[in-house]
């Protein structure tokens, strides 16, 4: 049994490694998942660079803006990204959770609306309240909430 990766897989790994060297800020030491304001422009710029390679979600099928990478290539990609400490806070929820679920369950319109914005890094993060301050948090007194349906019932989407 041969436990080695194939030459093609190894060369893919190398290409990711070299690309990261060229495209991350020199001496990069930020946190991978944070959304800290001080580094926001770096996160966004890096996400845009990933997008030009279709590397925001490279394991997604081509029709959804990915490259359809194999599981092993995805593993290698993630390994290199993690080793380089590459920031993905800008897109991690969209790629890892919301978008992937949208591929499985979303309607065509929903997929068009969200997946393209994720893979092209073309979305602007929602603003956080400017009035927050560091320190003990005001405890919210709301412990439950209610919702109410308004408008006519619409068509129900079937799931698989």
């Amino acid at each position: 049994m041969d436990f080695h990766f194939s030459p093609e897989e190894e060369s893919f790994r190398q290409s990711v490694r070299y690309w990261l060297k060229d495209n991350l800020p020199e001496d990069w030491e930020g946190d991978r998942f944070s959304r800290n304001a001080e580094n926001r422009s770096i996160y966004k710029d890096f996400a845009k660079r990933l997008a030009t390679k279709k590397w925001v979600a490279p394991h997604w099928p081509v029709e959804y803006g990915g490259l359809g990478l194999s599981v092993i290539q995805q593993l290698m990609f993630n390994e290199e990204m993690s080793y380089a400490n590459a920031p993905i806070g800008y897109s991690s929820i969209g790629v890892g959770w919301a978008g992937s679920t949208g591929i499985v369950y979303g309607t065509e319109e929903q997929q068009k609306k969200h997946l393209d914005a994720i893979t092209t890094a073309n979305r602007t993060p929602a603003p956080t309240s400017p009035t927050w301050r560091r320190g003990p948090y005001a405890t919210a007194t709301i412990t439950s909430s209610t919702a109410r349906r308004s408008g006519p019932p619409g068509p129900t989407t079937r799931t698989g």
């Binding site: 946190d31 959304r35 800290n36 304001a37 806070g89 929602a126 956080t128 309240s129 927050w132």
Partner: peptide
């Protein structure tokens, strides 16, 4: 939204 700053001083 209101940021929750963790003990690393991170906003996640």
């Amino acid at each position: 939204t209101r940021p929750l700053i963790d003990m690393m001083n991170n906003h996640g």
